[in-house]
C-alpha cells in the first residue's frame, strides 16, 4: 500500500492523516461552541475583584 509493505508503517501513515482529519472535523463542528456570554464574563470578573479586595483588606494593603 502506498509503496510501503509493512502494515505498521502504512498504517501509521494513514493514522497521521486520519488524526488530522479528526482535529479538523472536531474544530469545524465545535467552531462556535463553548463561548461564555458577556454577562457571565462580567459576573465572573466582578466576583474576582470582590475576592481580591477582600484579600487585600485582610492583608491591610
Amino acid at each position: 500500500m502506498l509503496g510501503i509493505n509493512d502494515p505498521w508503517i502504512w498504517g501509521v501513515y494513514l493514522l497521521c492523516l486520519l488524526s488530522t482529519l479528526l482535529c479538523v472535523a472536531y474544530g469545524l463542528i465545535n467552531w462556535n461552541q463553548g463561548t461564555i456570554s458577556e454577562t457571565e464574563e462580567i459576573t465572573e470578573e466582578k466576583e474576582w475583584e470582590q475576592l481580591e479586595e477582600e484579600v487585600e483588606e485582610e492583608l491591610g494593603l
Binding site: 497521521c16 488530522t20 479538523v24 472536531y26 469545524l28 465545535n30 467552531w31 461552541q33 463553548g34 463561548t35
Partner: peptide
C-alpha cells in the same frame, strides 16, 4: 484564552499545523 471556543478552534489549526511540521 477566554473560553472553550478558542480551544475548539485551536484543535483544527493545531492538528493541521503539527501534521505539516513533524509529519
Amino acid at each position: 484564552v477566554r473560553s472553550n471556543r478558542e480551544l475548539n478552534r485551536g484543535v483544527l489549526i493545531g492538528g493541521f499545523f503539527i501534521l505539516m511540521m513533524t509529519g
